[in-house]
Design a protein around this nucleic acid. Structure first.
Length: 803
RNA sequence: GGGCCCGUAGUCUAGCGGCUAUGACGUCGCCUUUACACGGCGAAGGUCACCGGUUCGAUUCCGGUCGGGCCCACCA
């Protein structure tokens, strides 16, 4: 261990930078494979999306997982703790478009991909450095990017495994589509948006078959532009016209074709008129009806968001233009009976807030709907922290309606290793050829054949759902017996239905087992008033600014206050508390080490007095509780335990009690306790505040490790019941004496002539057993000349005479 | 519509069948004591949302009410 001189002050800025570089240079967090697989702790680290800067939510959730990682390391585990970035997909494309002021759809595909790659490569190092700055102790040698060749290869390999296991298919299907991003999206990428809209009441004629037939009826719709896609009319069975209309044909206005009228409870009485037109496709309900009644398919909207030839004279118009034009025409013909403004909630794409459309197109899907049972079972097999987060997973699995669409009509992603021949047969790459880009490469045996490459790329989740597999393949020598399942998946609750769910799916399919044994779900960091942070509200807090103003340790401390699963407001005062705690650790340890220096020969002394036994008992209990909390992944409880020990017992009392012994008595027997408690304090704080603890560890030769983070937390089993009680009593009395001194406006060292202490009988007995020692301490600590006791109820100090 | 979480001093919170309800910030007062004034010691501040029930005893457990938040579904 490299010992350093103790400075007068702890210079946070330069020292945090120094230790960050020290850890990297000395490879303190480098993974080393042990022989025994039970001695590895494997973390499925979330790969953040390279998006410029780490945000404050990241800084909390990654700190929280790092508390656990560091604790486990200090319990003797080898940490399999990789770090990757999720670089492909729409999020990156949008960033690249913004930075370079380009549009992917307007560029040559290979140029755009090249630009994406370059942009991400440029940003990555600085981006990842934010994680190093907050002290995330991953092994950055085990780094991957989801867009690098090695990961593309793995992603394609497991795609082929899906093919082999018959879990993937390509099919023309109703597909959620974003006209703005011009790509298919998955169910999970939808978001609700409330907006105002017009409900239009439109008259449909009935094809009359005899005299008594109803002439016409009125439907309500917000999407008149879809009239040309109408394939049926549904009427609620309770509707007064239900029986009269059932089985008849309705005539769609303007377009004048006939559609059947069908009774169905799905047509709600209190919505619109209780009669609704079903268009393929206006919304998800239409798909249900389409499937249930085997309705024909009639698509009117093209992928670019304009109407197609089915729309007749409206062809070529954009959706909104068509809506206006049709309404005009309907009005003119007096078919539009009424309009009213309604509040409507629509599905939008979460990345661009564009209203989604449902189109019919060929996409690749992973079969998941038939796995629901298996998936629910899997959710029971790993532990959820906190437990109630499992509900979200269960809810999601039970309500699944779509297979998982993994193809995207975008550019910067993992290519499908797929071609089509002239007859439309699908040709897959073979594993040895991977990675392939079908746009450039051809499969073996087809070199001179005419093949159509699959142009779609995979959704980013199709790759990030493989993170534990990727890590094992890349850094674990593909030794799944050794590494699988992982110990921990840490992540936030907003992506339970994305990343967590997807990873379980892939793990069940490829490895036939759950991916991890524990998941910890962290919450969101809200603004100080408890609202979501967003750029538009201007209430975003940057972790970089917080670090600059305080320190990484301080930020981590604030993160340790928030419990798993809780959404919590960002509170600067918590960061301040962290800052103060780090400062206090520095000072307290500096004080202790000052006296420990050169006293190594006394460290084995066993002649502890009752104060030593008292503090050692408190320490033992603290470590026990600390361990128990951490074993439950409850880092905030663990931190509270060490805080309590540190402030209430160690600094405010033990050190104060010890001063007279250190300065005056030169009591040789106290060094071993001072050493143990001080070292433990540093160790127990190390998972939370890795920088300041590393700093003070190097002020003294605590042991031979080159870093505090390589030391093992020692457990102690001191349990001196009598001394603990006596120490508590001493503390109680001293608190009272301090109170009296404060009330009398005296300093703590003011000399006390005499003091009368009220006690309970059993307390007096306690003292009498070691009266001389007890009084000596009390007198020395509080500068008291004479002590008397009375046995009665009331405030502890009956009277105090101060000189 | 279904599900989940949460209501504790001015603010953020700990606790969760039984001592005087935890700690932090803020407020006020005192103390320049040789680790720290980036400090120490104290004080004030609470109907533990409300109403019932279980219990010898409820902030804690159960039911309901009100309020806040989240997830999912529906959304013509």
């Amino acid at each position: 261990m490299e010992k350093i001189d103790i400075p007068k002050r702890y210079d946070v800025k330069s020292r945090e930078k120094y230790w960050k570089e020290f850890w990297e240079k000395k490879q303190i967090y480098k993974y080393e494979k042990p022989k025994d697989k039970s001695k590895v702790f494997k973390i499925d680290t979330p790969p953040p999306t390279v998006s410029g800067k780490m945000h404050v939510g990241h800084s909390y959730s990654y700190s929280q997982m790092d508390f656990i990682a560091r604790y486990k390391r200090m319990k003797g585990y080898s940490l399999f703790y990789p770090f990757g970035t999720d670089d492909n997909g729409l999020a990156t494309e949008r960033l690249v478009e913004k930075i370079n002021n380009v549009k992917g759809t307007n560029m040559e595909r290979h140029e755009f991909i090249e630009l994406c790659r370059k942009t991400v490569d440029n940003l990555r190092e600085e981006f990842v450095d934010d994680w190093k700055k907050i002290g995330v102790s991953a092994d950055y040698n085990m780094f991957y990017s989801t867009i690098n060749e090695d990961v593309i290869k793995i992603s394609q390999k497991y795609f082929l495994d899906l093919v082999k296991k018959d879990r993937v298919y390509r099919k023309e299907n109703p597909t959620l589509y974003c006209p703005n991003c011009k790509t298919a999206i998955a169910q999970v990428e939808l978001e609700d948006l409330e907006r105002e809209s017009k409900m239009n009441y439109i008259e449909f004629k009935v094809k009359k078959e005899n005299e008594n037939d109803v002439d016409s009826f009125i439907i309500g719709t917000t999407r008149p532009e879809l009239l040309s896609s109408c394939v049926a009319v549904f009427i609620n069975p309770e509707h007064e016209l239900a029986n009269k209309l059932e089985g008849k044909k309705a005539i769609v206005p303007i377009f004048n074709f006939e559609v059947p009228i069908i009774k169905d409870e799905g047509a709600l009485l209190d919505k619109g008129t209780g009669i609704v037109m079903c268009c393929t496709f206006g919304d998800q309900k239409d798909i249900e009806w389409y499937k249930q009644y085997n309705l024909p398919l009639k698509i009117s909207i093209k992928e670019d968001g304009t109407l197609n030839e089915n729309a007749g004279k409206y062809e070529g118009l954009k959706i909104k233009e068509a809506r206006e034009k049709i309404l005009e025409d309907l009005k003119e013909k007096n078919i539009l009976k009424k309009q009213e403004t309604v509040k409507q909630v629509v599905n939008v794409h979460e990345r661009c807030s564009t209203e989604i459309e449902i189109l019919h197109s060929k996409q690749w899907f992973i079969k998941v709907l038939d796995m629901k049972e298996e998936l629910l079972e899997a959710g029971n097999k790993f532990k959820w922290h906190p437990e109630h987060m499992k509900n979200r997973y269960d809810n999601w699995v039970k309500s699944l309606k779509w297979d998982w669409c993994i193809s995207r009509q975008r550019f910067f992603g993992v290519p499908f290793p797929v071609w089509y021949d002239e007859e439309g047969n699908v040709i897959f790459a073979s594993e040895e050829e991977l990675p392939v880009d079908p746009l450039k490469d051809k499969p073996k045996g087809y070199e001179d054949k005419n093949l159509i490459p699959e142009k779609d790329v995979m959704d980013t989740w199709a790759t990030s759902s493989l993170t534990p597999i990727i890590a094992t393949e890349l850094f674990g020598n593909s030794d799944f017996d050794f590494y699988y399942p992982f110990d921990l998946r840490p992540q936030a609750h907003d992506i339970i239905s994305f990343w967590l769910f997807n990873t379980v799916v892939r793990s069940l399919i490829h490895k036939n087992t759950i991916p991890w044994n524990n998941v910890t779900i962290s919450g969101w960091v809200l603004d100080p008033k408890g609202r979501k942070m967003s750029k538009s509200k201007g209430n975003v807090i940057n972790p970089q600014d917080v670090i600059e103003k305080y320190s990484s340790d301080a930020l981590r401390y604030a993160a340790s206050i928030v419990k798993l699963g809780d959404d919590a407001p960002f509170q600067e005062k918590d960061v301040q508390t962290g800052y103060k705690t780090a400062n206090k650790i520095f000072n307290a340890v500096k004080f202790s080490i000052n006296f420990l220096e050169g006293k190594e020969k006394y460290l084995e002394n066993k002649e502890e007095n009752f104060i030593d036994k008292w503090i050692l008992t408190k320490l033992s209990k603290t470590i026990k509780n600390y361990n128990e909390s951490f074993e439950k992944y409850n880092y905030s409880e663990a931190r509270r335990k060490i805080d309590e020990f540190f402030w209430k017992y160690y600094t405010d009392n033990y050190i104060e009690f010890s001063k007279h012994r250190l300065y005056n008595d030169k009591d040789e027997n106290m060094y071993s306790t001072l050493f143990k408690t001080t070292k433990s304090v540093i160790q127990l704080y190390a998972p939370f505040m890795p920088f300041v603890t590393e700093e003070v560890y190097h002020y003294y030769n605590f042991d031979s490790e080159e870093s505090i983070h390589k030391t093992i937390i020692e457990d102690y089993n001191y349990n001196y019941e009598y001394e603990e009680k006596l120490g508590d009593l001493l503390m109680d009395i001293i608190v009272e004496v301090r109170k009296k001194k404060t009330q009398n406006q005296k300093s703590m060292k003011a000399k006390v002539e005499s003091i009368k202490i009220r006690l309970k009988e059993e307390e007096l007995k306690l003292i009498e057993e070691k009266k001389e020692e007890f009084e000596l301490e009390l007198k020395n600590i509080m500068n008291i000349q004479h002590i008397e006791y009375t046995i009665e109820e009331g405030e502890r100090i009956k009277e105090i005479k101060i000189e």
